[in-house]
Nucleic acid binder design. Structure first.
Lengths: 331, 331
DNA sequence: CTGTTAGCGCTTTCAC
DNA sequence: GTGAAAGCGCTAACAG
């Protein structure tokens, strides 16, 4: 039996109402009373029960951070970990806890989303479906979409400048005098994939460089596949003098292959990644890559979500976070 | 206004109780009735309200995963991420969601732990204090301690064989003919630090090798500090021929320094890490390191915690997870 | 197999 | 500034 507001009432003689107020809205209770109540509470080891509170307030002060389980590690990878840290941080500042779950966790066997109404709002990351978003909304759970963009009414999307980031990367390579630039695309969501790919082809075209089909590869973003594909590329009779990889892991696979083949980096093969994940400074030489402020994305998403929750703000918005080329040792 | 069990009752004519049972314990309701109810529920877009359920059952089916905020990234780092994945997985299998929070998140301004009673039990990771554990317990929240060991009644601790893992690492180095083995210890919790350090000194002593004070270093586990310290070690007039680092990040710092100084790895300097984090295969040459099955630790912790919750199992237990030396390119 | 009755612990009108 | 009463949405006895 845990102690309730009632036990405190018995000890100090005040009514349940007053005890409740002393904790929920202290300013409504005189200072003396408050202190008496706090002392009594401490004596019986009382802590407000958030469940009961949530029940009557119809608000849990919990947020959900939902990642599709298309990838492994399921929820925590070099990209989403910092995003999550950002979410956690503004959550803390504004009084929200956060659940983390994969999409699988929130589906009923029937396929219906079962939010259990234990979250006031959710941030959905990456790949998902419109029906999932609608499912949340039909239960009055606002959603913010992160790293993906859907054209839905009143939907806030936090995305980043995949296209522009890619352009920066390719132009940097061009400036280094590279002309035979290959691309290894990770098999991400169509939106991300297309934006980055378009950045690559457009930039090349703009500089009058023909697209070489042999230099275009798509892989599952695993180290093994990346290495395998880099190997193929470097074995070509006419091999590329640069590789742009659409994430750091893939880029690192390419670096490793070049290192093992003793091909000089960046002289004979330049390599640029994308994300500036915590892997990028592990490899030696360190990776030149396109940085995105992942923690900032998380903060933005959480902030917007809480704004909706508290201010009933609405309105469709697409926030595009900027990118920055970080030049290190590989290009 | 979200729909309640009452709305469903009105649509299909059954009582609230029956509706409730159709969702909470389907086997108590006839198949036909159930289908009628489900249809009605779908019609009004009804989903059970987990808060109300938790309120009466006094059980939330939520677990807390608490990481001290001594480190950055606060909650998600190469060590705890896989642990968390393990927790999530058994949580999903057994019907629990999981909150993730740093210690800061769960403290009231008064310093008291405020669990908000929204978690049935918690897994506390790494550094913490006995008072925190007691605080949870006084609110009837069982705790499982992970990667730390306290001598408390009925406390289940999930730890790993720091000592044995270190012995394996040092003996491997010895087998390779190394005799001047340095250690760079990360500044972890006393328990972890001491166990690993003891493994180092004991093994050396057992092989009749004197301890060289100049080869003993302690650092904050950051790349910068690791590199700085490795630099010092490699600049010694009589420099070590091997370095054992108490985590992978530190080991990688040493590898990078050796690479930059063109000291042959592992011929002139062998390096062994600890953890087998996802960094270990990023660096080239890949890191020889002591593997611990982090995901397994998470699964074990979650499993034990849920056992306590559901079976009221108790009893003090210390689970020591094994380690395995993974020989790659650096030693 | 289904319905009735009581709450779970808290907050919130509405009084005083 | 404080109290009394009502009820949030659900489940758990206990009947029938």
């Amino acid at each position: 039996m845990s102690t309730t507001i009632f036990d405190v009432a018995r000890v100090c003689g005040y009514s349940k109402t007053t005890i409740s107020r002393a904790f929920a809205s202290p300013e409504m209770v005189s200072v003396e009373t408050r202190n008496i109540i706090y002392a009594a509470a401490k004596q019986v080891n009382y802590t407000p029960d958030a469940i009961a509170r949530a029940m009557v307030r119809k608000k849990t002060n919990n947020l959900g951070f939902i990642v599709s389980d298309q990838q492994y590690p399921v929820v925590l990878n070099p990209f989403y970990s910092p995003v999550f840290e950002g979410v956690l941080q503004v959550g803390r500042e504004r009084g929200y806890s956060v659940f983390i779950a994969s999409e699988k966790d929130i589906q009923l066997p029937t396929g219906q989303v079962y939010v259990k109404k234990q979250m006031d709002g959710v941030i959905i990351c990456g790949q998902t479906e419109q029906s999932i978003i609608e499912s949340f909304r039909s239960q009055n759970i606002p959603v913010v979409l992160l790293n993906n963009v859907f054209d839905m009414e009143d939907l806030i999307c936090i995305t980043l400048d995949h296209y522009g980031g890619t352009v920066k990367a390719i132009e940097h390579l061009l400036e280094q005098g590279k002309r035979d630039i290959a691309i290894i695309s990770g098999h991400f969501s169509p939106y991300v994939y297309n934006e980055r790919f378009r950045g690559y082809t457009d930039t090349l075209k703009n500089h009058g460089i023909p697209i070489n089909e042999a230099f275009i590869k798509t892989v599952e973003p695993t180290m093994a596949e990346a290495m395998h594909t880099a190997q193929q590329l470097l074995s070509l009779k006419h091999r590329p003098d640069a590789i742009f990889a659409t994430n750091d892991l893939i880029a690192i696979g390419a670096v490793k292959i070049a290192l093992r083949a003793h091909i000089a980096i960046p002289k004979d093969i330049a390599i640029v990644g994308f994300d500036d994940s915590n892997f990028s400074e592990i490899i030696e030489p360190e990776l030149t890559t396109v940085r995105i402020d992942k923690e900032e994305m998380g903060k933005l998403a959480a902030g917007k979500l809480i704004d909706i929750l508290e201010k009933n703000s609405t309105g469709k918005q697409v926030h595009v976070c900027g990118t920055q080329l970080i030049i290190r040792g590989t290009a």
